[in-house]
Each structure stands twice: as structure tokens, then as C-alpha cells.
Design a protein around this nucleic acid. Sequence first.
RNA 1: CCGCCUCUAGCUCAAUGGCAGAGCAGUGGACUCUUAAUCCAUUGGUUCUGGGUUCGAAUCCCAGGGGGCGGACCA
Length: 511
Amino acid sequence: MSDAQDPAADPAGSGASGSGLAAEKVRRTARVDEIRERGDEPYPYRFDRSHTLAEVRAEWGTIEAGSETEAVVTVAGRIMLQRDTGKLVFATIRDRDGEIQLFISKGVVGDDAFADVKELDLGDWVGATGTVMATRTGELSVKPTSVTLLAKAVRPLPDKWHGLTDPETRFRQRYADLIVNAEARRHFEVRHAMVSSFRRTLAGEGYIEVETPVLHVEAGGAHARPFVTHHNALEMELYLRIALELHLKRLIVGGMEKVFEIGRIFRNEGISTRHNPEFTMMELYQAFADWTDVMAITERLITNAARDALGTTTVTIRGQDVDLAEPWPRLSMCGAVSAKAGTDVHPSMPLDEARALADRHHATYEPSWGSGRVIESLFEELCEAEIVRPTFVTGHPVEISPLARVDRTDPYVTERFELFVDGRELANGYSELNDPREQRMRFEEEQAAKDAGDAERGTVDEDYLRALEYGMPPTGGLGVGIDRVAMLLAGVDNIREVVLFPTLRPEQEIQ
RNA sequence: CCGCCUCUAGCUCAAUGGCAGAGCAGUGGACUCUUAAUCCAUUGGUUCUGGGUUCGAAUCCCAGGGGGCGGACCA
């Protein structure tokens, strides 16, 4: 647009001068007008196909080279490649599940229709009806008697061979990335297969899927900075949720026994290869269970997902094959840090000793932190990155686990685990704290830390405490980072590869 | 928020201080079994933006913007 220039009104019909993007769009848009002017529709409302391209291949993929069948099919797809030999045009079209070649003969479709075929561009959507055949070289093809334009593409596709590699363009224009990069398509197929596998596993074990509020009055259930928004009619601030936990446990109080939710949560923090500001969590809670049950279902969920998404339970992590079906090792946080630091650590240790150890190992800490949180910092500094195969890290200090139940054999740690794979945290679960009085004390400690200036710490959620006062049965809970598991199964090390539209700064100008 | 890297045609990339180029896509032409079809011809540029140094800047410097990687932050 804005090319109000054209006093040239060039008789050559070459549209805008040159062949940049603008000229290309002018040319293709002019084609749309041409088709309309003669009474045809370049964007028809619907099209009925008889077969997907994969179905054609499944049924006739093995016919002999040079053979023609009587079978008539109607297919549809986007033109990805074109080879024009004069009176014969080969067009490779693609739908969601496959590709096939159209063998378009001037003699078969007739002169007028063939002229229209010549006007098709890469990227156009077409439908075709014709017989199934295989060329002399054995390429399975449809030989159309008619070819219908289903949608004109007025913007050219990226390079047919090199595709689209610029990460910025790939993430901003995911649609173009998906059109052109099979690997990108695969990542989201894996993600879909994984999520649907999770749902199947959970349904099979009697879990109920629920939806809880995204807009929270208090953003609890995790230590993270929330996004703040405003409700006009209520005239109040609301927070986008940072976790699903507290609402789901209210449902356990309500007697729903086994619940889960797969939902988007939002954390107002940095962006990295493992962090997107909005991401997807699966959390489940199960009455009468404890953390050991939850570790077991974590293994089942992820192993089943691998089998369903990849057809194998073996994945490659940092170049080594790991069979997820083998039991996952457990590693106590304090034990791991003790081994690395060469001296025993425990949250009961004096704070100055914990700090001295942190100093020696370049682990950072804040003045407000107790020994437990300093130990966690040491763990992150010394141990986290070295974990390759799936490992349950257990026994988190009480100080960093305000919603988890104290370990039945050690009052300083909780019955909690985090699942680490390839140096990344994938899941987190524990025996849920259900004593309302102890929960109130833990909340008050959180509130005190927040008041002391630690912005990520929590607040006292009075409604949640009221729920606990009605009695929550013994409960095990789990949170799984869906994006992180998708990364594992897709074999990628950047979360943007498994998030369709990752958060980016807005473009300044779209051409 | 900090450090390093990066930004050239629609796409993928050259050009390292001396006339901004190639392949693909596009356009015109040839070809009824191609496979990234091929062959001939050809169009297309705010070199991210603004400033500076220089006889001369895509190239060097400064500032800004987008993106990438790493860090900080993220139990």
C-alpha cells in the first residue's frame, strides 16, 4: 500500500517497479483482482476433500512406477514447490500430515485451466481432483482434472531451500516458521502428544480435570513476582496467578480427592532459554497420598508421555541415552551439598557456618536468609547444573517450603522433592501441609520476610487457612513444568522452541 | 538490569575503508516425467536508526533500537 505512486501505470503490467516485497504483493494482489473480475472467487468458503495427503500415500504409496490407477481423489494443500516443464507442471502440495505431487498436464486440464495453473504462486492453497498415479521415476502423484485456488497467498514464502533461520523472525512470525521448518512443526507435535498423554494417564488413574481462577486477589503458591492488573468494576488490583496450588488444595478440602489442572501461569521475571513470562503448569493433588506416591506418578506421567510422543522411553540428554523407564535416582539436597562441600550441612547448622561455606563456594545469599535457604543456594551453585539424568532431589529445608509438610523423621526438612533433568527443574512435589495452625505460622513467616523487603515471599492467605480448618485429608501434590518436559522430549534447549508465541518486545513497524 | 555477539534485497548469505553482490523467490522466454527441475535474459537496496571520523563508511567510533547467548533475577 501507500504506493500511491503509479503515475507510471506501466503498460508492461509489471506492477510496482522492481520486485521487492512491495512489488511482489502488488503483483499477487492484482492476480486476486483479475480472478474476481472474471467472476471467480480467489478465497472460496469451503472445500471438501476426499483424502488427506497421508491417506493417499497410505493407500497408494506402493503402486508401481509409471502406473496409473482409476482411483479419483480430491485433495488440498499449500503449494510448496513447483516445477514447470512447459506443458506439464509439477506442484508439491502439503497439508498437515503429508506432501504429494500434483502432475498437472495441459492436455488433461485444458488450455484455460492450465493458464490459471501457470499463474499459481508458491504459498497458494489449492484443491485438486484427479486420479492417483506414480510417475516413471516412482513419485506418487495426483493427476488432476481440475485445480481450484482455495486461498491466494499475496506474501511470498521464505526461501524454499534454506527456509527461515533468523530466530527473531521465526518467533515473531511463527506462522512462517511452521510453514517452512519441519523441525518447528515437530516440536509442537511432540508437545501436543505429551499433553494429551498426561491427560490420558491422569484420566486413567481417576483424576478430575478442573479450572481455577487466573485472576488472584493474592498471588500465592510460589515465590515469584506477579503481574498486576486492575479490575474496573471492582475497582481493585488483581494479580495473575503464579501457581495453581492453593485453589486446587481447596478442592481437596471439598472432597474431590484427585484433581489436576493444566494451566497458564505468569511470573514477572527475567526471560531466558528456560523462562518465558507465561508458561504452562500441570498440578495435581491426591487425597490420602504422600510424596512417595507423587514421585511415582511423576515417573509414570513423563515416561508414558515419552512413549506416546516419541514411541520410545529413551531420550538423549547431553549426548547420552537415558531410558526414562529405569527408576530415577533420589538425591537428598543436604547430602548432595555435603558431598560437594566436603563437610556436612543441615538446616539446623548455625547460620554463620552456612554463610562461611557459601562464601567459600561462591554461593550468594541475602542477610535475611536462614541456614536452610543458604543451603539451597549452595545446592544451586554446586549441584544443580551437574544433574543430567532424571533425579529426584529431596528433603528441602522447611524455610524454603512453606506449603510442604515437615519430614516425619527430621523437623528441619520437608517431605518434598524437585525433579531435575539436564540441570533444569522440571517438577516439584510434596506431602502437603494440612495442619491449619502450622500453616498459619508458616504464612506469618512468609509475611514477615515480605514485610522485611523480600518481594517474592508470600502473604497470609486467610481463605486458604479457613479451608484447611475444615480439614484437608493427608494429601500429596505435584507441579510439572509442561514447557520444560516438552523441551526434554523435543530435545531442544530453548523454551521458545516449545512455546508457539514466546514473549518478545513489540515490533516497531510491520512490513 | 549488566556483559559479549549480531542486524546487508521477500528469504539464505557475500563484500573489512575504495562503484553493494550471489543463490532462491519474482519478471520475460524455452521445455509434456520434474524432484531445491534445468537453460537464457532480467528487475529488486533507508546495508536497523541517528550522529561522528575520513577525500571516501555496510565496514571504524559514539548513542539509540531489535534479536541472540551468558549473567542477575527466577524456592
